[in-house]
Amino acid sequence: MALADALDWEAARLADVASGRAGSAALLWQCERALAVPAAMRSRPGFDAACARAAGAGWPVHLRATGGDVVPQGPGVLNLTLVFMQPKTDGHMLDAAYLRLTAPIVAALAALGQAASHAPVDGAFCDGRFNVAIGGRKFAGTAQRWRPMPGGHAVQAHALMLLDGPDAGAVDALNTFYADCGIDRRIAAGAHVALADLRAGAAEDFVRCLSRQLA
């Protein structure tokens, strides 16, 4: 599906859950090559020029509602979006939502014989504590958006998983975007691991296992 349509779907389902029209929703999706950028980055100096240069290089920029940092999208990326209500508790709500999002990913990797853990990874794009890492390299990145609703929050939780890559073009697009926005950050391709790096057919097997986990 088109990235713009996926982002629209996420926004609509978050509104549905927050208003009580729906209890939860899930979507596995892939989209065209693009950069997905947190909307909060709009205010950075150089942002418009960075978007123009990225688009000129074949990486159109789309704004997304979740937190985090710039990520590449494209045929080598599989996305999982979960939207659900997180009831009020005494704490750990943020961690609980991340674990709910990553549990089926970790389980699908385990079915392939791959041990995974949650860990930050130096040099990875959109780095964070709730990356899903394999052998110390980033396989999946995660981010969320929370909206208050009666009794808790509506949560949009998103995971980006690497079927392939990121290739040199994606890494160059990310690093150029950072530089154009005046952000002192460098992404290294070697900080990541994709299913294609593990063995032939791993991506197809993973998608099958993940779909079973979500059913």
């Binding site: 979740t66 981010a143 929370w146």
Partner: peptide, 10 residues
């Protein structure tokens, strides 16, 4: 909007 741990809170 506030952000913590890559999560955007309204």
């Amino acid at each position: 909007e506030i952000m913590v741990e890559k999560s955007q809170f309204e």
